[in-house]
Simulated scan of single mutants.
Amino acid sequence: MALENELQYLNDFKSTDGNSVLTVYLNTDPANPDQQKGEWKIRLKNGLNRIQEYLDASSDEAEKKQYKKLKKKIDDEIERNRTELQKGVIIFASDEEDLWSVHYLQIPVKTSFHWERHPVLDQISELQQQYPRSGVILPNQDEVKVIDTELGIINDERTYHFDPGSEDWTFKDGLASSDRTASGATHVDKIQQRFEENRHRFYKKMAGNVDKLKKDRDWKEVHLVGEAEMIRSFETSLRTKPAGVVKKNLNKAEPKKVLEEVFN
């Protein structure tokens, strides 16, 4: 489910029959001075225990049982994914309609815990405004990589390759470079020379694909990442001015690393 649709669902979600929603915002950013020794584990334990203590003193057995079940589920989820932790975790959980929404983010959050009749959406809504759905474009000669992202979450990855025969761009899912082979070094040199001579025209075609993706995916922003010369050529072909530019060749970097460079 796209984040915008999920947020609408969560916003409309109202618990009935005495069930509540457990909302967890947990900062796990290892770069935070307060997180150097994994203090998030203590904050998670203390935050969940405080709600438990409140319920033990004021709630009926059914609600306490429901909370303990969700508390264990969250503990198990985070323990199982400890190696995947980045900078923040957001979880919405309820027995009602089996609500279970987990987001591992590359952006930090402010740690807080809530037990309410509805999901507490203030932080995730603010973060969506700060880190809207965006396209991150990595132009590199006759290959252009595209990352569709929101809240630092990767929704989609694809790589476009330029076909010198048809003078068009084709794509495949994922960012890994293809294993294209040429008949020899001279052949490769000729293709590269031809691309350099016609780079603006060829990039203009690719920019049309990016403009279409921006409309279809409802990107609020476009960011460019690559060597300065490639960025300049590609930027002049785009209809929309990029929200940000990172002048680094990250073509072989992991997508997470690319997003760190873009949004940090």
Rank of each mutant, 00 (worst) to 15 (best):
I124Y: 12
E96P: 01
S15T: 00
K69D: 11
D95S: 10
F113G: 15
K64F: 09
I74E: 12
S59C: 14
F113S: 11
K71S: 03
S125V: 04
E79A: 15
D60S: 13
R82I: 02
L99S: 00
T83F: 13
D75R: 10
T16S: 00
I78V: 04
K73Y: 01
A31C: 07
L127K: 10
K14A: 02
S58E: 06
L44S: 11
K71Y: 09
N46W: 05
I107Y: 00
V21T: 11
K64Q: 13
Q8V: 15
T16L: 00
A57R: 11
K68I: 09
W100P: 12
Y67L: 03
F92Y: 11
Q35C: 08
P30D: 07
R80H: 08
W115I: 07
E53I: 05
L48D: 13
K68G: 04
A57I: 02
I107W: 00
N11V: 08
G88L: 02
K45V: 07
I78M: 02
V89L: 01
S112T: 11
T16E: 00
G38C: 09
D12A: 15
S94V: 00
L48I: 05
G38A: 10
P30N: 08
Y104A: 10
Q52M: 11
V109M: 10
E77H: 03
D56K: 12
S125N: 13
K64R: 10
R80Q: 12
E63F: 11
K45E: 09
N81D: 02
L22H: 11
W115M: 13
Q86V: 01
V21E: 09
T28D: 08
E79C: 10
I91W: 07
T23V: 09
D29V: 12
T111G: 13
E126S: 00
E84C: 05
K37W: 04
K72N: 01
D75C: 07
L99W: 05
K41P: 08
K71M: 03
I51N: 14
I91M: 14
Q106A: 13
F113W: 07
L99K: 04
I42F: 04
K110Y: 05
S112G: 05
